[in-house]
Design a protein around this nucleic acid. Sequence first.
RNA 1: GGCGGGUUGCCCGAGUGGUCAAAGGGAGCAGACUGUAAAUCUGCCGGCUCAGCCUACGAAGGUUCGAACCCUUCACCCGCCA
Length: 425
Amino acid sequence: MSNPDPTAVVDELSWRGLIAHSTDLDALRGVLAAGPVTLYYGCDPTAPSLHVGNLVGLIVLRWFQRFGHRPIALAGGATGFIGDPGGRNSERTLLTAEEVERNVERIGRQLAQFVDLTDGRGLLVNNMDWTAGLSVIDFLRDIGKHFPVNVMLAKETVRARLDSGGISYTEFSYMLLQSMDYLELFRREGCRLQVGGSDQWGNLTAGLDLIRRVEGETAHALSWPLVTSATGEKFGKSTGGGSLWLDPALTSPYAFYQYWLNVDDRDVGPYLRFFTFLDHAEIEALESATVERPQARAGQRTLAEQLTTLVHGPDELARVQAASAALFGGGALEELDEQTLAAALSEAPSVSLTGEAPSLVDLLAEGLALSKSDARRAVREGGAYLNNNRLTDESAVPAETDWLHGRFLVLRRGKRSVAVVERTR
RNA sequence: GGCGGGUUGCCCGAGUGGUCAAAGGGAGCAGACUGUAAAUCUGCCGGCUCAGCCUACGAAGGUUCGAACCCUUCACCCGCCA
């Protein structure tokens, strides 16, 4: 898709609620109108995978690409080494060089999945490339000289840290590195726009200042609002507390799909706008459907479908939908044929068994990653199920007839956590 | 460098010799109600070979019949002074 009006990307993002702060929007439109604009978004490799928090950035890059612009996805091999002081009240634990390197490699692959890199339409870079060889003296002279400490101290991220636990010189310097990235990309690639979450605003504007001082030119910044949820919980914390990762090894596509399927009614509309590329009419229709017939959860279903496809692909989507239908369909598991059941269960965490079966409490603990105390408690509280039947006996052992098709036991804790035990002989 | 304050379970935070696995809140989990939602109510929320035992209150050592609580040393954090 190529839109005839390259400035319309601003209106699109605005309609979707993806603009929180911006530098001069009219000036930005002017730049966008003048031709394809190169812009960048950076992620630090603090973990071996991107998470949903990074998803907005990737989607914004895609929007720009759709409107004919040229996105750069930056993996922060250098900045991740230092640690962003923002959004925390204490110092980060430094990652080792091996960890950063490994994370950069993995995150780079994920970034490449979201941005079309063919024929120079997009670019993937690592800021370590221009930071590693820099000497301290050059850095202090060429970059540090342009940063008034009084201005840095006034930045929200720094001030918050001064009020809580203090901040090391290392993290204090983070802003300089990020600004230097922008300057570097401005020089190398003619990058004129940096996008980021609103918590990055201070860092974004620091980059603009640097470019103005060094190059005497105006660059732009655009931020999106922090994604929140209606209940005030941290967005993207999957049930169970962990982050919602994009890597299927860290968050299974099934769990990923279920997360979106369970989104609060009040969040569906905003999330459809933020996270999908559906057109306005379709989103508005889903928004009214959510108001009129909330129990159908049409919005949640579409959201879950769209995002699972975006991140994990259509094949995974089909599998997790089959699994969800089997596990939440309300029908008896015994009635599912072996093939369907096996396919559905392939999405759930599983335990393989060869010999005699241990107690169900042991299996619950292992399959659902609980402590045995927790597993015991779940049974005691009536929150543990075998093949959709509530367990009541803490010392129960699976009976021969419990094995579905002679192969499977379906264990469940509460409504949503499912694990499968598979027996091989 | 000096003086003072602090370090408690996932987070915040009470606890100053036995009744402490440690108040209260938040987060989380389960049950009921529902729509695999929200709100609400109820229960749970260190581990285990679970009516008992083990491990835990920054670290190590000590006093004591007994220590999260007292003493010593060390580490880190926060103030004020230099």
